[in-house]
């Protein structure tokens, strides 16, 4: 198997603080890895470095075997990395309709309108929003907005999807519904994914391996059962306990 994304000795320093500290991590094609850890442990910063929104202070980020960031420099800008992302605050553009939001990535790639519309309607149907294409984001419920964000990531047809607390602040029933949707999509697409969450339930449902971060360091990486069997810190013990439903 080849690594779709690889972080090698990545460190991120901001305002004199070490946000991410010497992390090495590889995600294989089609593999879902959850990034777990308490607030401020550097999970989102890792996603932002993979996206190219931030350059690592030290270390290398590789995508599909190619160096895209190295030692304080972004070598390939975000728009050329071919990634898809569901943001924590969803970042749906309020001035564009649902259709406009979902079609945006295809439009920038110059996909012809007919093909674009077809792919958007397939994506919207897949997330259960068929017929919503003319609606404005402001008129949607929280769960519907979440689905639009997922459709927008889905339509990009990327081999690596990133999720930053994508299901945070939803009620349990909707969260469960969307977890099933995401699980299905990731399996159908065979996309790799980096999934940031501090919810053990989401990690257990979606990820094959879990990377646990504390204070910017990768303290443990393994399958849920490996974490449960040999937890290296008290946080990992509590997290894997919750994974196992204890």
């Amino acid at each position: 198997m080849t690594a779709i994304v690889e972080l090698e000795g990545v460190t991120l320093v901001a305002n004199g603080q070490r946000i991410v500290d010497d992390i090495s991590l590889a995600v294989e094609s089609g593999e879902v890895v959850a990034l777990a850890g308490p607030s401020g442990s550097g999970k989102t910063s890792i996603l932002r470095m993979v996206l190219g929104l931030v350059a690592p202070t030290r270390g290398v980020v590789r995508l599909r075997g190619k160096e895209v960031s190295r030692d304080g420099r972004v070598l390939v800008p975000p728009e050329e990395r071919g990634l898809a992302m569901v943001f924590q605050d969803l970042a749906l553009w309020p001035h564009l309709s649902v259709l406009g939001n979902v079609a945006f990535a295809l439009e920038t790639r110059g996909v012809p309108k007919r093909d674009r519309d077809l792919r958007v309607s397939v994506a919207l149907e897949r997330v259960g929003l068929a017929g919503f294409d003319r609606r404005a984001p402001a008129t949607l419920s929280g769960g519907e907005r979440q689905r639009v964000a997922i459709a927008r990531a889905l339509v990009a047809a990327s081999d690596l999807m990133l999720f930053d607390e994508a299901l945070a602040s939803l009620d349990l029933a909707i969260e469960e519904e969307l977890l099933a949707l995401l699980d299905g999509i990731l399996r159908e697409q065979a996309s790799a994914a980096l999934y940031v969450s501090h919810e053990p339930r989401e990690a257990r449902r979606l990820a094959r391996r879990i990377a646990v971060l504390e204070r910017g360091r990768l303290v443990q990486l393994g399958t849920p059962s490996e974490l449960l069997a040999q937890p290296r810190t008290s946080f990992v013990r509590a997290f894997s306990g919750a994974l196992a439903g204890r």
């Binding site: 800008p77 728009e79 071919g82 943001f87 924590q88 553009w93 001035h95 990535a105 920038t108 990009a156």
Partner: peptide, 25 residues
């Protein structure tokens, strides 16, 4: 800034982000 970041991730370069995301918003 996530609106612009989302556009960048979707493949929009600087000028496209300015014209399609920043200016209308």
């Amino acid at each position: 800034s996530t609106y612009e970041e989302a556009a960048a991730v979707a493949g929009a370069g600087y000028f496209r982000r300015l014209a399609r995301v920043v200016a209308p918003m």
